[in-house]
Amino acid sequence: MTAQKSRNASLLSHLGDAALPFGIVVALLATWEAAVHLLKIQPFVLPAPTEIFKELLISGPTVILPQLHVTLIETLAGYLAAVIISAILSVLILYSSTFRRGVLPLIVASQTIPIITMAPVLVIWFGYNSLPRIIITAIVAFFPLTIAAVTGLKSLEPQFIDFFRSLNATPAQIFFKLRLPVALPSIFGGLKVAATLAVIGATISEWVGASQGIGYLIAQDTALLNTTRVFASLTVLGVAGMALFGLVGLIERLSMPWIYARPSMAWLRASQNPRAPAAAVARPRQ
């Protein structure tokens, strides 16, 4: 009974959580719509939300989505590459002091270069295809991921290592059964930041040296003053970015049940289980 009630209550509070930002968005869109009509703003300067919605219905399925498909493939390929690169780098940084002292400062220095400006050069090197854009996406996304992973892998309290060593654990056991689980929250933080950066990296790299992709479409439409479709494309891109972010968040929840399991669940189970009566519930007081 109590479990049912509290579940309903938490569902309601979740709906309440979503209602507020939703209300703000509706209010903003209404103001925007009213402003465009009242101030007679030209569509190529700022299209009304209803116009953008119409554009979405017209050119969404035929024009925008095929371009989004191209961009998403670049995003995912670059993201995957960033994950692999980060995994290798963070382990090297963790275990090799030579690497840490010799290469880490260079990686940090490389981040001060605006990578996007490298896009035309990469096209010269790798040709007029997806590869240069995948490379740029990976370069943009790997850095925060690597830093997050290293921070997480180092956050282990030394007492845990002593404890594992007292059990004669191998270095591999210490890494996989101790360091990695401890680092997971930090790694997922990095994965989320990298997911949004990957979308931005892929889109912006299409502005220069591309013949397809949603970034290319936005650049073309901007030049033609087709601002309405630019906004429609941005809307689609925003939804795609949020979906990717949400997907990483979902994987995070599934990978770390000990963080997302409610602490009270054990108590509810004990009180509902007829075979573990009062004793099991009363015991935790000490």
Binding site: P257, W258, A261, P263, S264, M265, A266, W267, R269, A270, N273, A276, A280, R283, P284, R285, Q286
Partner: peptide, 18 residues
């Protein structure tokens, strides 16, 4: 060890003594 019914619980839901 006074832990019956808690085999599938995470440590965060246990008291200090447990």
């Amino acid at each position: 060890f006074g832990l019956e019914g808690y085999e599938n619980s995470y440590p965060s839901s246990l008291s200090g003594g447990m």
